[in-house]
Amino acid sequence: MKKNSRPLLIYLFIYLGFLYAPVVLLPLFAFNDSAIIAFPLSGFTTDWFSWLMEDESLFRALKNSVLIAVTASFISTIFGVLTARAMARHRFLGKQSMFGLIMAPLFLPEIIVGVSILIVLMQLGLALSLWTVIAGHVLLATPFSVSILTTAFNNLDRSLEEASLDLGENRIGTFFRVILPLVTPGLISSLLIGFTISLDEFVIAFFLTGTDPTLPVYIWSLLRFPSKLPVVMALGFILLVASLVLLSIFEFYRRRSESLASGKENSGIK
């Protein structure tokens, strides 16, 4: 198809401009030597970063968030494995409704999930804690883990498992020797997605958090103080850079293992 794609390309650039408009402000104001967030910029400073480093409650919030995100992504990945495996390999009564319930959080506004869990906790008289946030985040992340792992398990040729059994290996051995190595990329993606969702989740954490705030809840409290805004900008900038660095490292290793594999392939055929 020979069609001029230039108008579309121009549109793409405008659209990217729209997408980047807010985020380019982060570095500008993170290094701006003024407590007021407004143009024109006044001068360069790294003070806001030093402030951050001294903010102990920030680090506590960060620690809480990481703890919650690691635990929640771990549990949601286990739930994802169990559900994906059951859906891919077994037939059972209530299959579709059980699956529907597990996937339902995808189709519910978060505020409703948050409020309803809060009501139960209140009725039961349970105190809010990191665990209540973890529970909420597991609920939220599990559907994502299930979709990723369902793809991973569906890509797994069933005859590989049968071949393993046929060659004398039992079911547990087959899981560790064949299934697990082949779904590892799916497991890593599921952990990463769960971690990201939990780390950035605000509404449920806002409702279910006790005395220990998560990072988004802490940021939320900072947003009310205009004097704290440059510090928040610095924090946002660090979050952005940190996730991009992590992402690039992940991508680098993924590509390197891929190119190693294809390199071997070339020499092998020769």
Binding site: D157, S159, E162, L165, D166, G168, N170, V178
Partner: peptide
């Protein structure tokens, strides 16, 4: 008997070569 308990072995249509 389970497949792993039988004195039979199979060559699969898709070969089922372990890719890893």
């Amino acid at each position: 008997f389970d497949a792993n308990e039988r004195p039979t072995n199979m060559v699969f249509q898709s070969y089922a070569i372990f890719p890893h």
